[in-house]
């Protein structure tokens, strides 16, 4: 191990080792990422369509909608505010360009406080709410029922906001945007209504890639990255070993040559104690030096 370690510690091989370690670290990060994706898939998969009860009992005002809760069925009672309703466009549902109608439901929290729960009441085809100017027009959306209502639907986490709300139209169902437009207090998630809503098609399951059981594929990818990471280190070890063995073989050949020439000229033999005939053949086999076949 000693001489091979000395080969490994040469600047050239240390530099290559640094490169290989870097490659392995990158592979490790990619493996971790895939591993986490696989687990996210698992945690979301088990939480679908569980009956959770009234929304007030499920989350508090300040609580986030965690992965365990997403997709669970909640009920809510209160009254819709027709003034606080937006359109969320750019969706594709059942092969049609769809627009989701999101309305503020005024509910009473478990502490007796008035709060806003955003409800995606359903969707309409885009052309139904597109005005003459070709823009989405919130005035064309079906108005919410008035008075006290009871709805049920899936609890969903807020979508990530990429843009704002302009004239009642947004690109995402994002509570950070809605709280600015509608005021607070507001729940951190929204409810995708599954009970019937007049003039609207019911919301489809908010389908993400993670819910489709990609877990094994992701675990496979994680394993694949680990294999690549180990392979980079193996390549380095192999390179060091080859360099070391090549040098040993070269040294042996050098010795053989000097011994052979010493055999031809016994006067010049460097070390009289070494048997000139026996040693080279033995060395030959050890070094793996090619023999003609």
């Amino acid at each position: 191990m000693g001489p091979m370690l000395r080969v490994a510690l040469r600047p050239r091989f240390l530099g290559l080792l640094a490169l290989m370690v870097l490659a392995t670290v990158v592979c490790g990060l990619l493996a971790t990422w895939q591993w986490e994706r696989a687990h996210r898939a698992l945690s979301e998969d088990t939480s679908v369509a569980e009956e959770l009860g009234p929304v007030q009992d499920v989350i508090g005002l300040a609580d986030p909608v965690t992965n365990e809760l997403v997709g669970g069925i909640v009920t809510a009672s209160g009254s819709f505010d027709a003034e606080r309703q937006i359109l969320v466009g750019g969706r594709h549902i059942d092969g049609t360009d769809a627009v989701i109608v999101v309305t503020a439901l005024e509910v009473t929290t478990s502490e007796g406080e008035q709060a806003i729960l955003p409800v995606a009441r359903g969707w309409v085809p885009a052309e139904q709410v597109t005005g003459a100017d070709g823009e989405l027009d919130p005035a064309l959306a079906p108005a919410p029922p008035s008075g006290e209502v009871e709805i049920s639907g899936r609890l969903e986490a807020s979508e990530a906001a990429t843009d704002g709300i302009f004239e009642g139209v947004a690109s995402e169902i994002a509570t950070p945007l809605l709280v600015n437009a509608w005021g607070d207090p507001m729940y951190a998630g929204y409810v995708a209504q599954t009970s019937a809503a007049e003039g609207l098609s019911p919301m489809p399951v908010a389908e993400s890639a993670f819910q489709r059981g990609l877990d094994w594929q992701n675990i496979g990818y994680a394993a694949q990255w680990i294999v690549f990471g180990v392979f980079f280190l193996y390549l380095w070890g192999r390179t060091v070993r080859t360099a070391h063995l090549d040098e040993l073989a070269a040294q042996r050949e050098e010795l053989e040559r000097s011994l052979a020439s010493a055999g031809e000229h016994p006067d010049q033999r460097p070390d009289p104690g070494v048997p000139a005939d026996a040693a080279p053949t033995q060395e030959d086999a050890d070094a793996g030096t090619p023999t003609p076949r």
Binding site: Q217, G220, Y221, Q224, V227, F231, W236, R238, T242, D246
Partner: peptide, 28 residues
């Protein structure tokens, strides 16, 4: 197709490695 391609790439790497060994090339 993604996993099938991944497998094909791995076979490619193994055969490249085999050639690399036989040619006694350097790590880069």
């Amino acid at each position: 197709w993604s996993p099938i391609h991944g497998l094909i790439y791995m076979v490619y790497v193994i055969l490249a490695f085999d050639l690399w060994l036989k040619m006694r090339w350097g790590l880069p």
